[in-house]
Amino acid sequence: MQRRSFASAVSAAAAAPFLMGAAPSGGDTPASAAADKRLKRDMVASLEAELQDRDTARAVAAWIYDIGFDWTPATAPIGAFDFLIAYAFGNRPPANGGDPTKVLAEPGPMNELLADTVAQVRAKRTLPVYAQWEIAHFLTEKYNMSQVIAINPVIAADGTITYLSTDGVAAQIAEKRKSTPGGVGTAGVVGWRDHIKRCVLTTEGRGMKAFAPEGFTMPDTYDPESGQPWTRRRDLYLVHDMNAQWQMKRTELVARMYPNG
């Protein structure tokens, strides 16, 4: 009985902000805020009926809403940033064929769009840019941009290429920023429209303050010829991204609820 009471209290506390509803952001209208509030209540009611457990329904509905319905990252004005991070999205198969495990993919049109977005931000304020190599390629070749630090894939002694995950990129940048005079600083994150929320969260998870640049629209035109199947169409990519977010949420919850293992 004591264990059940404790679990119920934890679940209810976690879900309280969800049920009250967050204050509308600058882009929300009263109508959309009201619709969100109704959706949240309906989600809890539906899960409670299915699970026969209101406390668990309240907690889980909050996580489902966060991962499945909220795709907007935290933003900040570019004056708040010390550097930019640009995360790649998709690629194209090697132009001349060959073993794809040992021949670099082509950067692809989606990464060119991301480079264009970085250039728009840099036009407002010159900041060092840590960019995955697919984006760095366009920043240097198309824009002749200075202060670009390319984050490259890992190439083994036998030539085998290991492309970095979003977290792998963030980890490399965090390590590089440790030796920066003045400390790690705050990152302005550029990423694909449906990827950027996770990019910001992943950057934060590696110990860097991170926000999307306020007032800039992230690209969202999918490439049906992408070398990564999950980045060829939006519905498939959203499933991929939600899966990654759930993995992050699971790790976070286990660490928070059972910090001693």
Rank of each mutant, 00 (worst) to 15 (best):
V190M: 00
L236W: 13
G98R: 10
V118T: 03
P73C: 12
A105P: 03
K37I: 09
V118N: 00
Q120G: 02
T101E: 04
P94W: 03
A61N: 02
D158K: 01
E106L: 14
L39G: 04
R206N: 15
A35Q: 11
K209Q: 08
G168T: 03
Q120D: 08
A255L: 07
L19Q: 13
Q172W: 06
A157H: 11
M208P: 02
D167H: 09
R250M: 05
E134M: 15
Y258K: 15
M242H: 06
I173F: 05
L114G: 00
C199L: 08
T72P: 04
E134K: 15
E134Q: 15
W133H: 07
A16W: 05
L139A: 08
G97Q: 02
T72G: 07
Q2D: 15
T75Y: 08
E175M: 05
R206Q: 14
L47P: 07
F83G: 02
A105Y: 08
G185M: 01
T126F: 13
T29D: 07
P77V: 07
T251I: 10
L127S: 12
A171M: 13
I173H: 01
D235V: 12
A23R: 11
M208T: 12
E112T: 10
H137M: 08
R125K: 15
K124W: 13
V239L: 15
Q247A: 04
M43Y: 06
A80D: 06
F6G: 00
K40V: 06
S8V: 09
A49F: 14
R193H: 14
P107V: 06
T221H: 13
A14H: 14
V10D: 08
D70A: 11
R234V: 03
L39W: 05
A7I: 09
T166K: 02
V200S: 00
T126A: 15
G90D: 02
E141C: 11
R41W: 10
R233P: 01
A131L: 04
I149H: 14
G182S: 06
V154M: 15
D99T: 12
A255N: 14
N152G: 05
L236Q: 11
G79V: 05
Q2N: 13
P153C: 10
A105F: 07
L51N: 10
